[in-house]
Nucleic acid binder design. Structure first.
Length: 215
DNA sequence: GCCCAGGTGGGTA
DNA sequence: TACCCACATGGG
């Protein structure tokens, strides 16, 4: 079967779902907290938890004065509250200890690989979460591979079907042009959500058409 | 009531 | 290194 390349996939998917341009939010620390809340959690629940967290703690300093139980209570609706409360608290604490203040704007001065490794030293921050911060807050060419991207990338043959999630990160960052990282991320997740469901054996009504290996 | 949303880290072989 | 599992809530 003929394989799709990255440009073709982006073209087909953006024709179907439309392009959403990246908008800078210049808030890497807020993005980091939001991304920790989104780990293994639906968007609806994680957004609700983030709003509740902001309502309970107007500043990161205020959050650091609270204990983990109070933070967990604020993010209860997001699921995995005890785990995430500890991760958020420890992460903010480490940022303040390492940087002397609660901000991550300095990451913009580092090359992507170094910025990513710095973030991954924080508790609860893996490759996916680190890349989310870099691409969403700063527009850097980092490619977070979530469960949808992992699945779709294997199905369309961009990465080997036996690849690990870490290998998928490495391979996709190699083959997705830096300027397309954001589009590829957003569109592939949308596609994964709509069509290539985890337990659906065939990809129905797939916009990749005859080139989709599952259609 | 069950399935689905959907990363990280710790443990084991 | 590779795999397995705990973690918890809310919507359909």
């Amino acid at each position: 079967m003929e394989k799709l390349n990255v440009k073709q996939i982006i073209e087909l998917l953006s024709r179907e779902y439309g392009r959403s341009e990246w908008r800078p939010n210049y808030d890497p620390l807020g993005t980091l907290v939001q991304t920790i809340l989104s780990q293994n959690t639906s968007d609806r629940n994680s957004h609700r938890a983030f709003a509740s967290l902001n309502a309970s703690f107007p500043t990161w300093e205020a959050l650091l004065e609270a204990d983990t139980r109070e933070i967990a209570a604020a993010i209860r609706s997001g699921g995995l509250a005890e785990i995430k409360a500890a991760r958020i608290r420890q992460t903010l604490n480490e940022v303040r200890q390492k940087r002397g203040q609660l901000e991550l704007d300095f990451l913009n001065e580092l090359p992507v690989p170094e910025a990513r490794e710095w973030l991954k030293q924080l508790p609860g921050v893996g490759t996916k979460t680190a890349n989310c911060v870099l691409v969403f807050a700063q527009g850097r060419p980092a490619l977070p591979v979530d469960t949808h991207i992992f699945r779709v990338s294997k199905r369309v043959g961009l990465v080997d079907s036996k690849a690990s999630i870490e290998e998928a990160h490495r391979i996709l960052e190699e083959i997705v042009p830096p300027e397309d990282a954001y589009q590829f991320h957003v569109l592939t997740i949308e596609h994964g959500r709509r069509t290539c469901k985890a337990r659906r054996p065939r990809c129905t009504e797939c916009v990749l058409g005859k080139l989709c290996p599952l259609s």
